Amino acid sequence: MKNASKIKTFITALSLTGAVMASAPAFALDEVTYGTNWLAQAEHGGFYQAVADGTYEKYGLKVTIVQGGPQSANRSLLIAGKVDFYMGGPLGEMDAVKQGIPLVDVAAIFQKDPQILIAHPDQGIEKFEDLAKLDSIFMSKDGYVTYFEWMKKNFKGFSDAQFKPYTFNPAPFLADPKSSQQGYLTSEPYEIEKQAGWAPKVFLLADHGYDPYSTMITTQTKMVEEHPDLVQRFVDASLEGWYTYLYGDNTAGNDLIKKDNPEMTDGQLAFSLEKMKEYGIVDSGTTLEKGIGCMTDEKYKSFFDNMVEIGIEPADLDYKKAYTTQFVCKGVGMDLKK
């Protein structure tokens, strides 16, 4: 009887242990923060998709997206170690190398920067070079010292006399048919057509030689060195999120975008997605064979050389410290493409 009692007690203990284990999570998720460069929008869609549909959790991650915006300082938060990853860009990381700040790009979501110049229709502006005929080009100060310097260096006819400050108000452009304005492929053309009732001529700088990557996954060099597995899991899950957002059911991602940014509309989301696909912003060139997020030494060097040519970066900069290709170009997520 004593043995029977012991066996019964043992079985009861096993049952209780099993119940506790069944109620506990299989494993603890690694908590990760990703800081974006603006308010939630379709251009961030793959990250939101991976949160919304559980892709990050599948990779053992609990990801919080920290929205950017007019008053945000997400890049500074990355430098300070307050966020783990940031939506950076090659110029920012090259400047970080110059300043001795250890930041590194680990994936390039946008193969093409969506920076555009737009013009009025029916003004004889049919080719990129025709923009040199216009009296005014409204652009930001950053645009003036980067891509406009590149334009002057590589095309005839552009001059400083054309520069007009862009205040992110399209009214001066709309009022002057002999002008052009900077914009984002996925944004300004949509708003202008809504306001003016006509579609502007669109010139994507990336299709004319101004070729930076954009919408990066950027982190501290220390993260890459000390936690490469976590970096790889975040990159891989993000890439799967982008494939689903572009080619699958992105309802969950869009719902989460609208939750974070209530001013976002279904019309804007649909337009942005259409243009990202039409122009190959995310999936084109190298990514067609090696997967979204891919970076190559050749393309990174091409942009660096352009920046050296216009005096933005010094020729002796060790720009290769600004990125690593170890986490990308592995075809992750390509099976989700339909």
Rank of each mutant, 00 (worst) to 15 (best):
P177T: 13
T33E: 01
R75S: 03
F168L: 14
A196E: 03
D142R: 15
P172M: 02
Y59L: 06
F148E: 07
A252I: 02
A107T: 00
S214L: 09
A196P: 05
Y210W: 15
E263N: 10
K8A: 15
I312W: 13
D176S: 00
L239V: 02
E149K: 03
C329L: 07
P25Y: 10
F163G: 13
S284R: 03
T64V: 14
T215N: 13
D305T: 01
A199Y: 15
V32L: 05
D142A: 15
N254K: 13
M87C: 12
V145K: 14
S179M: 06
G333N: 03
A270V: 00
T9R: 00
K62H: 02
L134M: 07
D297P: 08
G197K: 09
S76G: 07
D130Q: 10
E126W: 09
A28T: 05
V308L: 10
V97Y: 06
V308T: 05
G81L: 12
T265Q: 01
V202D: 08
E278K: 11
L273E: 11
K58H: 12
Y279D: 06
Q71H: 07
A4M: 13
P90W: 02
N250L: 05
V97D: 01
C329H: 08
A322Y: 06
I310G: 01
G88S: 06
D30Q: 07
S302W: 14
Q268A: 14
A40S: 03
Y166P: 12
G248H: 01
Y34V: 09
E226T: 15
N169D: 11
D229Q: 04
V51H: 02
D84H: 01
A237G: 06
S238C: 06
G124S: 05
L39E: 05
C294P: 11
A196H: 08
K127H: 11
L16R: 00
M216W: 07
L185V: 10
A4H: 11
F27R: 05
S23N: 08
M307T: 07
G248N: 02
V332M: 06
I101W: 05
P177F: 12
Y300N: 14
V328T: 01
I109L: 07
A24Q: 15
G267A: 12
S179G: 06
D105F: 02
K112Y: 11
Y147S: 09
T186Q: 14
I281P: 07
Y86D: 01
Q41I: 15
L91M: 14
K178E: 06
V97G: 04
M139P: 10
M139V: 14
A28Y: 03
F27Q: 12
M94L: 08
T146E: 09
E298M: 00
K301G: 11
F85W: 10
Y184L: 14
M307E: 11
L185I: 03
P170A: 10
L256P: 04
K62E: 00
A161C: 04
M139L: 13
Y56N: 05
K290P: 07
T17C: 13
S140R: 03
L16Q: 07
K275H: 12
F303A: 12
A206V: 10
K62V: 02
S302V: 09
K153F: 13
L174H: 02
L134A: 12
I281K: 00
A322K: 09
K301T: 10
K127I: 02
L230P: 04
P189E: 11
D229I: 03
Q182E: 15
